[in-house]
Design a protein around this nucleic acid. Structure first.
Lengths: 357, 357
DNA sequence: ATATTTAACGAAAACGTTTTCGTGTTGACA
DNA sequence: TGTCAACACGAAAACGTTTTCGTTAAATAT
């Protein structure tokens, strides 16, 4: 019912000026002890809390960081958010999230909506459509307006900003090498179309690992799935394609899949074809999510440490924000001070479970 | 580099007043066509967008809604967020999310942080610890400060506000009846401790359905899991408990579990014990998430329609916000206008998959 | 007794908008 | 020639803070 109380109201009620109230509440020694006490007591009684919006306007910073991701119903992205929220909260920031839904336009709209004062900086992962279009002007535009960006996972060289990535290539190498060590002779790859950079890197890792192990890469041991927008029956299509793939390549005894879903689906299909896992076929996925942990058999995966990525991203962003702030306060604007952009690599780790020997 | 341009700067540059610029940009007919054109062209050139914070301060509303949930790495909660974000975005709102992490204190801190002007209203689901403590003063406090709240899923009678819940009781009834229809004679329940209301209701539904089917509820056919904070080895404990449960009740031929995890774990354990699903034992879970869809065999579940819950919650909240606004603008404050609090029930639906006959 | 410091407070600007209420300049009209 | 609209614009207040810079009165120093 009753709106939150303001300085002005307190001032009026106690018959002092707004400035006096403000100073008293911040324990300024300009104000006598008597009035300070009186004012603080009154403020406490009415549960006064300064209005954040007014503070934001005055300080020209919102203590809020914007997250912009392609999708939220996704284990990896939600762990990243959790990581961001954790350090943001600890360091006194709020997070506001926008979803691009893998759409270029929604990405732009969301950015413009948030860039007009609502936040101090962005943490984002690029949408698929944007990667396809290769149009990154909106990122550079907001950076030029003085708003720092940290990109994670799906990053791109065309934008100059801090980045946090997982070592996709090396993770893939590790996975494939593990399969090689486990005596797999014919290792297949199930991957996506190449325009999402992570898919490309993981594919590259697969190829490099094979070569390093003296095995030959064979193009028909690679299954490329078109992960476009056929949301509904996508699962069935996937199963059919994998089944066909396995049937035409009966020698396959090891599978590396670039994500969790492909991996568990591969296991499912394999089982339907009468293959025992891990005896007849070993499987390793990428991204350690719920599926991997609870599948039967549970899935050996390359863990991306999403939460850690989120935490690092948030630290990177807030560090930069606070550096800027310090810089502004300095009388001699020392240009040398500007921190270079950092590309932080989060190491992957293989989590061994039942799908490998 | 260059900060975003403001009205004042445009005004200075074009040698007119701030008011003129403001009016010109909103196509006021107070301003001549000439100057309007000139100003609009200039504004477009410099990509002027009004500052959201300033607008928020002036309008005393932020067009932002706060989401406060216990956990984000959770399929159900993330679908709810997706739903909220969808309608929020469509209706011109942003969302800012806070995580209570199931903690009472973090819930309060988050609420206080957001309630000081950052948002226009809350959509939240109560943390477990709060439910345990049964201390709801912070909810009522923020409501009394004029900030509307919509609660979803985990709601509570002690707080007067709009609520969106799933029909837990009826969903459980449906599930158990389905098992009965499928010729299950000994139906077990795997549930949680009772303090989370949804667990209690689902348990109650199980009991009612049994009674309605003329079957007797047997207390040792019910397994209560203590879902406290033993995050790490929780899974093993769970498997052990379920295994023990199944062994001491060999007659079980049907299982209703109050969540997805318990259901798939039950299937896993059952298989290890040599039971075929669904032939020897049929299983139904609650909450339709990734696990249900991709488990082998895939799991029959009661779908909660999380996204729909989110959408309805958002609509409820925004409706109320805009009703308030209209009310404020009215000269005669018509008290009768106040909308009663709504409790909206989302119907559940059984999604049949391979774990039932 | 006069000059100077100190204590305690208030006025006003600023952050970026929108909106209400002037105000001065036209042109038309009597 | 004088009156009155209409037109085009500007000044100022307001949203809720913080902070700088007065200003007054009392206390101290000379």
């Amino acid at each position: 019912m009753k709106r939150k109380i303001t300085l002005k109201q307190i001032a009026k009620e106690l018959d002092v000026s707004v400035s006096t109230v403000s100073k008293a509440l911040s324990n300024s020694k300009e104000i006598s002890e008597d009035t300070t006490q009186k004012i603080q007591a009154f403020a406490k009684l009415y549960n006064y809390k300064p209005n954040n919006i007014a503070l934001s306007l005055k300080n020209r910073k919102t203590k809020t960081i914007g997250i912009l991701i392609p999708e939220i119903v996704h284990h990896f992205f939600s762990t990243v958010i959790r990581g961001i929220e954790r350090v943001a909260n600890r360091r006194g920031y709020n997070v506001i999230v926008g979803l691009s839904n893998e759409s270029f336009t929604k990405e732009i709209i969301n950015m413009e909506m948030l860039a007009n004062g609502s936040i101090d900086g962005f943490i984002l992962s690029i949408s698929k459509e944007t990667l396809l279009k290769q149009d990154y002007h909106h990122f550079n535009a907001t950076i030029n307006q003085g708003m720092p960006i940290v990109m994670f996972d799906r990053v791109v060289n065309e934008v100059d900003c801090d980045k946090v990535i997982v070592d996709d290539l090396n993770g893939a190498v590790k996975a494939v090498k593990k399969l090689v060590e486990n005596d797999c002779k014919n290792i297949a790859l199930i991957t996506t179309m190449d325009y999402v950079s992570v898919g490309r890197l993981r594919t590259q890792g697969y190829l490099e690992a094979l070569q390093a192990s003296g095995m030959e890469a064979n193009s028909n041991m690679i299954l490329k799935i078109d992960d476009s927008l056929d949301v509904e029956n996508h699962l069935e299509v996937l199963e059919t394609e994998i089944a066909h793939f396995f049937k035409s390549n009966p020698s396959i005894d090891g599978v590396f899949a670039v994500n969790e879903l492909y991996a568990v689906t591969a296991m499912k299909v394999a089982r339907k074809l009468g293959l025992k896992i891990p005896d007849d076929m070993q499987v390793i996925g990428f991204t350690d999510g719920v599926l991997s942990k609870h599948a039967t058999p549970s899935l050996t995966t390359v863990s991306q440490h999403g939460q850690k990525m989120g935490e690092q991203s948030a630290n990177l962003l807030i560090d930069r924000l606070e550096a800027e702030e310090a810089e502004t306060e300095q009388y001699f604007t020392n240009n040398e001070k500007k921190r270079d952009f950092i590309k932080m690599v989060i190491e992957t780790e293989i989590i061994e479970r039942e799908s490998t020997k």
